[in-house]
């Protein structure tokens, strides 16, 4: 990156980081209050409705739920800042909630990341080509494909892929994240771990397990990114500066890259950021179909059992990911668009 881009971008990042921490703090309060306002509660979930008032009171005291809610919140924040989120009460009773997060979350992130990667790598070139051949057969075909992508529920697509590619034709594994190869764990991202420890068969196995769920999940961002790219390219092609570029006799490659795509990427990048929420939700469903062992299953049990610790850590971390991705989006926006960073 040239020097005159770096400085302003850095200042921009710091400003956004501050905003971001504010968002997370507010969110943590809302989440805390919301969870405690849900009907039922941890104690009823564990002891059942018929427990005696004495045993309820004892459990409440043990869990610290008898204190005033603001005290509970301050205690939660104080511990969270030290990286402690308390013990699970329902998913794996007694286990540290943060541990549960650490074992579950990488699976979901790995899956979502590959899904968005597939979507972007296919959707952006396709969107460009479709826009350039507006009204042609390729354009029409890909618009229809993207409509199908929007319309078909992700778990249904997951079932279809699993049925054909795993069960019927046996090309790819049916479920799970990896064969049991005795792989060394480093980060919890299995593909990455295999590369780090040079256990390439571990990476390969993890990748094969990822393919079907990732393609199923990719259908969500694919459809959106494709349509936004196509629309953005169509808009940019009508811009005066593209005509200027043509009037300069520039080569097709330069016009495509520097003048059309660079401008068309602005709305696309924003869209990708906004897709992360839908992607995490879709990941929960996809994980279920492929028994993938991400946060999806843990979230479901935690909700049933009103496992506040696990819910708090998982939801806050998911929100953090969402906010961080959108920060990255804004940064790339600032790198692409000088009007943002020099404002």
């Amino acid at each position: 990156m040239p020097k005159e881009v770096c400085g302003p971008v850095l200042r921009y990042i710091i400003r956004r980081l501050l905003q971001m921490s504010g968002v997370i703090v507010v969110l943590s309060l809302l989440l805390f209050l919301w969870l405690r306002s849900l009907p039922g509660g941890t104690v009823s979930a564990i002891l059942g409705e018929r427990a005696t008032p004495e045993s309820r009171a004892r459990l409440e005291k043990a869990l610290g739920l008898d204190e005033p809610i603001y005290l509970q919140y301050f205690r939660f924040v104080g511990r969270a800042l030290r990286g402690e989120f308390g013990a699970s009460t329902g998913v794996l009773p007694g286990r540290d909630a943060f541990d549960i997060f650490l074992t579950r979350f990488p699976a979901t992130i790995e899956l979502s990341f590959l899904a968005i990667l597939i979507a972007v790598v296919v959707a952006i070139p396709l969107g460009y080509v479709a826009a350039r051949s507006r009204g042609g057969w390729l354009d029409n075909a890909s618009v229809v494909a993207s409509l199908i992508g929007v319309a078909v529920p992700v778990f249904f697509l997951a079932f279809l892929l699993k049925y054909f590619f795993a069960i019927k034709w046996g090309l790819l594994p049916v479920s799970g994240r990896q064969e049991s190869l005795g792989c060394t764990r480093v980060t919890g991202f299995f593909v990455l771990d295999g590369l780090l420890t040079r256990e390439f068969d571990c990476s390969w196995s993890a990748l094969r397990h990822l393919i079907l769920p990732a393609f199923a999940l990719a259908s969500i961002p694919f459809a959106v990114v494709f349509r936004i790219t196509r629309a953005a390219v169509l808009d940019v092609l009508d811009e005066d500066y593209v005509r200027t570029a043509e009037a300069k006799g520039l080569t097709k490659q330069v016009i495509r890259g520097r003048h059309v795509l660079r401008n068309a990427m602005l709305p696309v990048v924003t869209t990708i950021g906004l897709q992360v929420g839908a992607l995490l939700a879709g990941a929960v469903l996809t994980e279920k179909v492929f028994a993938f062992g991400g946060i999806g299953e843990a979230l479901a049990i935690a909700f049933q059992m009103r496992d506040y610790s696990v819910l708090q850590v998982l939801i806050l971390m998911a929100a953090t990911v969402f906010v961080v991705v959108n920060l990255l989006v804004d940064i790339s926006y600032a790198v692409i668009d000088p009007r943002v960073r020099t404002r």
Partner: peptide
């Protein structure tokens, strides 16, 4: 043959120096 267009703002690419 070269050409100069009417609107100088929209005729320059906003994201290229």
């Amino acid at each position: 043959i070269a050409m100069v267009f009417q609107d100088p703002l929209s005729s320059l690419n906003p994201v290229v120096p």
